[in-house]
Design a binder for these strands. Structure first.
Lengths: 224, 224
DNA sequence: GAAGAAATTCGGTTATATCCTAAGGGAAAC
DNA sequence: GTTTCCCTTAGGATATAACCGAATTTCTTC
């Protein structure tokens, strides 16, 4: 009964059991470039579900463009986003053939889906990606387990900066609610920290979704 | 400046650069059962460091007996334990050849060390283990990101119960400080929740490290 | 461009967990 | 058996972020 931004349920879910119609999306690209490795790119509308907790996990996913949130829910609607994924990143790993999380498109997104079973050579290629995801998750544990609100938001902004190649102009694909649910904070707290950083001259806000990091070193000093 | 249980540094570290002498341990078992796959079992004393953040990662580790904590530190000493490992479990995965975390023996422990490079077949065997670790970490994010103190401790106790095969008598290898740093709480809060669970009849404490889960279903109802 | 809806920001109050201090208990050392 | 030290428990004050309500801004839709 602590933290919130309560959310009823995966909202845009339509047909949980039928992958083909599970999304409000249209096919974009011919399904396969090689017969032996059938994979297709599917468009997902904003907030469309890509997969849901409990479903059988039969594929891997790669973001072509757009952004994805992977999250888990408590029964009362509390949500924890464990990761965001942007263009190029692979997600959807599962250990036992079932999804333990939900995945949704944050904005209109194209997702490439790999359905072939994992041979040894493919496993070798996937392992480093999975290990990187593991390290990211464990580092995120430090952020939400031991850092205060300002430190968490600073870490988040720096992470976004890094992912967008270092240009100080950072485009946020996600809402304040998403950021809060990623950082284990409420939207009010996230908003307050943004305002505080603005007042201190660390960032400049051009619209709600565009953040210019003026003093990244100040943010970096915060969360070391 | 929020949460604590501050710890200066990996305390028992002796020779950071010399793996063989890095621990206060003695060799236990002949180094290899197969010449092509040299691996050895090393004894670590309680609180001895197994590896440290920044060191080159050249091996995988498996707990023979005892228990291990894997953690990360902030510069002011705040610590987040990302995982505990008990007999049979494998840890020490790294993505880029360097350790991003510290690993220490919680109690006197024996660790089997695998040094051979990862071939495709081995990668395939390791992948499911890494994926399981990834899911654990992401599920733990939900616990410390969105659950309150009582829910966190309940989740921890149930996790320990499951790991020890379901016998209601749970032996805790770790101190209250370790539990706090795993759950993102202070030791006072952990202790208070233990007391509250005892008063409610959920658990019985036989000594500090032995917890009998009398009503696991009550704990389960707490953290769903 | 106007109206409506949604998302974000702001202000004030409250609750939870930290912080600080101190007492109690067990294990190890003498 | 006694002492010492460390871990744990306990109590009370404080602070941080949640909670609640509302104003403002932004985005959609017409």
């Amino acid at each position: 009964m602590l933290s919130h931004n309560a959310i009823q349920a995966p909202s845009t879910r339509i047909h949980p059991d039928v992958p083909v119609t599970r999304h409000t999306a249209t096919q974009l690209v011919p399904p396969a470039f090689a017969p032996s490795q059938p994979h297709q790119v599917i468009l997902y509308a904003s907030n469309a579900e890509i997969y849901g907790q409990g479903e059988r996990a039969t594929a891997l996913y790669q973001v072509e463009f757009g952004a994805v949130r992977v999250y888990r829910l408590l029964s009362d609607g509390r949500r924890q986003i464990s990761a965001f994924h942007v263009a190029g990143e692979v997600f959807g790993f599962e250990a036992d053939g079932h999804h333990h999380f939900f995945a949704e498109a944050i904005c209109n997104s194209a997702i490439r889906i790999f359905r072939q079973p994992l041979g040894a050579d493919i496993a070798r290629g996937i392992l480093p990606i999975a290990l990187k995801a593991l390290i990211r998750a464990q580092e995120h544990l430090l952020v939400i387990g031991r850092q205060n609100a300002a430190e968490r938001v600073a870490a988040f902004l720096l992470d976004q900066l890094e992912r967008q190649g270092g240009l100080p102009q950072v485009e946020l694909a996600m809402s304040r609610t998403d950021i809060g649910d990623y950082l284990g904070l409420t939207i009010e707290t996230v908003s307050r920290v943004f305002s505080k950083f603005r007042e201190k001259g660390y960032i400049r806000l051009q619209g709600v979704r565009t953040v210019e990091l003026i003093k990244p070193e100040a943010l970096r000093a915060l969360c070391v």
